[in-house]
């Protein structure tokens, strides 16, 4: 019989044994060494059925397929853009993936120039971690207004919240348009600059206190208190 050695949401370090026996299966952040499951990452334990996962609490962005990311165009060739998505290597956006017709020989800088920010989807990640981007899909576009802030990519799920509860709370209260990229870049645009600033502060607060319990309530209080002064 298998036996769990840790509880759900326990914090574990690399090399810590999390389960015994063949009943539990290693998932992300764990590996099997003979009969034991061992953590391979510094993070908290997540158990779903027989799968044991360790979800990291820190670290850089790890690109995965179908992630929506916010990137900055860093370089271009005749047929590609190279986009900085906060990973070690730059992602490639082909001119065929812009979602609109690009005539051969067009100067690509007329579509996206160096320094432009874009919202894109990760089409695929190769084994060598080469990233392909695509602009085809709803909401994928060049960013021309608003501001972009940086948060830790591991905290993005917390900023979005369960089924988007946290982010829709901030959107609703401040009336801002917000887009959270999986790579930790957040785009915020509001009609009222003061409200936009409050939204930025709220997101930075989540970034710093991501492991506090009942964070949604605290953010709600913070937003209500701050917004009272504005109105």
């Amino acid at each position: 019989m298998g036996k769990l050695l840790v509880n759900e949401r326990d914090i574990v370090v690399p090399g810590e044994e999390v389960a015994e026996g063949m009943d539990y299966l290693p998932s992300l952040g764990t590996y099997r060494d003979k009969e034991t499951l061992v953590s391979s990452q510094f993070g908290f334990v997540n158990i779903s059925g027989r799968l044991v996962k360790v979800i990291p609490l820190s670290g850089r962005y790890n690109p995965r397929r179908d992630d929506i990311v916010i990137g900055r165009v860093a370089d271009m060739t005749f047929s590609n853009w190279f986009v900085d998505v906060d990973y070690a290597t730059e992602a490639v956006l082909s001119s065929k993936e812009t979602g609109e017709y690009v005539q051969r020989g067009t100067d690509l800088s007329q579509i996206y120039g160096i320094g432009d920010y874009i919202i894109a989807r990760v089409m695929g990640v190769s084994r060598q971690k080469a990233i392909d981007l695509s602009m085809r899909g709803p909401g994928l576009r060049k960013i021309t207004t608003g501001r972009i802030i940086k948060v830790d990519s591991v905290k993005v799920p917390r900023i979005i919240g369960k089924e988007g509860s946290m982010i829709s709370l901030i959107k609703e209260k401040t009336g801002c348009r917000i887009m959270v990229g999986q790579n930790g870049k957040v785009w915020i645009q509001g009609d009222d600059l003061k409200k936009e600033r409050i939204a930025v502060e709220a997101i930075n607060m989540i970034n710093e206190k991501s492991f506090v319990n009942g964070l949604t309530e605290k953010i709600k209080e913070f937003l209500e208190k701050e917004l009272k002064d504005v109105q």
Binding site: V13, P14, G15, G29, Y31, V38, S40, Q41, F42, G43, P56, L57, S58, G59, R60, V154
Partner: peptide, 11 residues
């Protein structure tokens, strides 16, 4: 290294 969120077998 562990704090940087890297994949490690052990400390």
């Amino acid at each position: 290294l562990a704090d940087a969120g890297l994949k490690m077998k052990d400390l």
